[in-house]
């Protein structure tokens, strides 16, 4: 999982005015235009570095926080096979966080700083993980649809310009395809099961549909400053394009097992070939970003407790002659 299309940015104005060396900038842009990758110790514009750190860091936080709503169901998974699969998936998500943190580290921000910013509420993560996972069917919806949405975004980003991020995403996408399959499997078993099971998965989709529609972020009409990021291949696809692609691929897979999408206006316009839908509540979206979602406080408190409770172990293992070096790739 779990990089959404929406990347929170409240520092934008501060760096907008930084003047870059025009010759270096031209060389940098030409390299990207030729399809070459940028590597950690290359010259890069301040804004490129800042945007990438922000994006990769938020992606990493989403992975590590995303492990929480699903991890809660490991002890209550229905059967040993499902339990093994869910443990493997949750472990993958934490592993993805580590891969992404290390990609962001190559840009000069330490992992400790990133985690501090996460647990102090300064740095954001995907909004979807601020919603509770009430039943086992939530595991199905998260694993199937939120991972699917994340794959749409990550496959696009893996074609981006920054080498370490692309390499991390290639590995991540490969593992995500297992997550999607296991989520789809649970979804199908519930949807084709008893009336109680069907009702459970329908209820879960009803609760998750709006967060899923939020996942790719507001419409491109509402969000600015994507042009430079697109030219620099930091952002590879627009929010609307990714949402359309997701709906194209997954609406049929939901409907084929008789589950109803809780939006009576959702349909594909035969003339434009585009999906039309009820706009989700964007005020709620921004409220959750601000920290007022149903589970924001719990997620950060749990993450903070994990760091606090692990401190003595990390301390005991530390050696006096250690010296931090920014990773090479």
């Amino acid at each position: 999982m779990y990089g959404g299309g929406y990347i929170h940015d409240d520092q934008k104005k501060k760096t907008d005015s930084i003047a870059e060396d025009p010759a270096l900038l031209a060389e940098f842009e030409a390299r990207i235009a030729r399809g070459e990758k940028i590597e950690p110790r290359d010259w890069m514009p301040t804004e490129y570095r800042r945007q990438l750190i922000r994006m990769i860091e938020q992606h990493a936080h989403s992975e590590i926080i995303g492990a929480l709503p699903e991890g809660t169901w490991i002890t209550r998974a229905p059967g040993f096979r499902r339990k093994l699969a869910l443990m493997a998936k949750v472990q993958d998500e934490v592993g993805h966080a580590q891969l992404l943190y290390s990609a962001a580290e190559t840009l000069g921000k330490s992992r400790e700083d990133m985690i501090n910013d996460l647990i102090n509420g300064k740095s954001k993560y995907s909004n979807v993980f601020n919603y509770p996972s009430k039943t086992w069917a939530d595991v199905a919806v998260i694993g199937f649809l939120i991972d699917a949405a994340a794959i749409v975004n990550q496959v696009a980003n893996s074609k981006g310009s920054y080498g370490p991020y692309c390499r991390a995403l290639e590995r991540i996408c490969y593992e995500e395809s297992f997550h999607l399959k296991q989520g789809h499997s649970i979804f199908v078993y519930l949807a084709t099961g008893t009336p109680t099971q069907r009702a459970m998965v329908q209820d879960a989709l009803n609760r998750w549909w709006q967060p899923i529609m939020h996942f790719f972020g507001p419409s491109d009409k509402m969000s600015q400053h994507t042009e430079t990021l697109m030219r620099w291949k930091v952002k590879m696809a627009s929010n609307d394009d990714m949402r359309q692609q997701f709906l194209n691929m997954y609406v049929p897979k939901i409907r084929e097992v008789g589950i109803t999408i809780p939006d009576p206006n959702l349909h594909k316009n035969p003339e434009t070939n585009m999906w039309e839908f009820t706009e989700p509540d964007w005020n709620e979206f921004y409220e959750v970003i601000k920290g007022n979602g149903p589970c924001n406080a719990e997620r950060l408190a749990v993450r903070r407790a994990a760091e606090d409770n692990g401190a003595w172990v990390r301390d005991a293992l530390r050696k006096a002659d250690q010296q931090y070096v920014t990773p090479l790739a």
Partner: peptide, 10 residues
């Protein structure tokens, strides 16, 4: 919560 190198070396 974390200080420099609390997560060791790489």
């Amino acid at each position: 919560v974390l200080h420099v190198q609390d997560h060791w070396e790489t």
